[in-house]
Structures are given as C-alpha cells and as structure tokens.
Amino acid sequence: MLRVENLTKIYPGGTQALKNVSFEVKDGEFLVIIGLSGSGKSTLLRCINRLIEPTEGKITWDERDITAASPKELLKIRRNIGMVFQQFNLVKRSSVMTNVLSGRLGYANPWLSVLGIWLSADRERAIKALERVGIGDKASSRADALSGGQQQRVGIARALMQEPRIVLADEPVASLDPVLSHSILQYLEQLNKDGITVLCSLHFLDLVHRYATRVIALKDGVLVFEGLPQEINRAKFKEIYGEEAQEVRATSFEAPA
C-alpha cells in the first residue's frame, strides 16, 4: 500500500506543481494518472521515488516513510521501485545488455559493478528480462540501434532487473505510435498481473479505459478526480481538461470503442 498525503511541490522558480495531493494505491493496482501537460504528473511520479524532493507532505509505503528516508535507506527503497520513461532514458552508446544490467546496480557490489564486473546470475537475469519483453536476441546491440518500441522494452527490462514491487511509468508510450503503445502497455499489464503495482501517466482515453484499474486526474497540481476508468465520460473529461482544451483534446480522447 502506497499512501500519498498532502503532497506539495514548489519549484525554486516559484511554480507550484503539486498542491496538497492525497491518494492511496493498493498493491496490485494499475493506477493511471491523467491531466493536461504541465498539470504535475511527472512531478508526482518523481516525488514517489524522490528524484524530486517534495516540498511538503508525506509518502509512506507499507509503513515505511519514503519522505523521511535517509539517503542510504532511499537507495534501498528505490531498488524496489522501477521506473519507465517517455524518452526511454537509455544510455545510447552502451549495449542493450549494459543498459539492462544497470537496473541491477542497487543490488550489485558497488566496487565490482563500476569496474563492469557482474555476477553471472545477474547476466542470466538480464537475458531473462530481455526475453520476457521479446528482444532476447538484441543483448549485444547498441541501444541506439534499436527502434523506439524496442528501446522502451529495454527500459522495461531494466526496471525488471530491480525486482520491483512498484513500477512508475511516466508517459511510457507518448513517443510511440498507437500499435506500439498497446504492445508496450501489454507488457506493463503483464507485470501488473504478476503482482507488481503500476503507476502510469497516460494521454489517451482509450488506453486509460483499456488498462487502468483506477484513475486519478490532476489539474494545475490539484487532484480533481479519483475513481474507476468507466466513470470518466465526456463530462468528466471536460472538467479535467477544461473547456478550452476540449476541442484540442477531443480528437485524441475518443470514447472507448
């Protein structure tokens, strides 16, 4: 159980990206976060693993206080929270294998790992992770030699190396075309069925309806909706995205087929 209480983030420039956000995520949920660009989705996801330091509020995970964790504890906590990014965030010049193995750094011996020495068990785990996302044959390719969809699968494999209990996915399919979007989200769905809690920000309503078990919506940093995907109809959508945005967004936010 992940509990977010009164989370507020004010950036140094003065932008208030999150305002008093509170919600809970039960183990095994596929929680989708929606909201306009700039509404605070990325900020929220990054506060959970403290890539961004919250200004105020508390995040607890199974009674562990993430917001109060010491730097050392934080590394331990992050080990169990995988993260997948819109831009994949792979090291482009490194091999796929190295990229996947780097997901294991939190477990590996710090000194041996920086010398590039890995346990054979970790290597086997990496191959398995790649096979699980269907690109076992790409281990020795350079990351930037892969297509976008393949790169995102490497990103998922890297997260799998962490033996995560939560995966945070920040618009994982926003850089991909619709067909690839489904294939990537299906991998996340599979992880979710295997018991991993998923928090994922998405832009397309049909994807929300298809994959979410629960939805929260942000508007200007404020939590404006929390409920089941079916509850989001056009009226709700208008409320979340604002009157003016409707025309722009209506095309991408089609009602589910």
Partner: peptide
C-alpha cells in the same frame, strides 16, 4: 535522462 534513470534504480 540516463542519469535520472540510474538514480531511480537505486544506484549510488
């Protein structure tokens, strides 16, 4: 991006 990704894995 990659720096952020590695921090997220719990790497020191």
């Amino acid at each position: 991006g990659p720096i952020e990704a590695l921090q997220a894995t719990g790497a020191n």
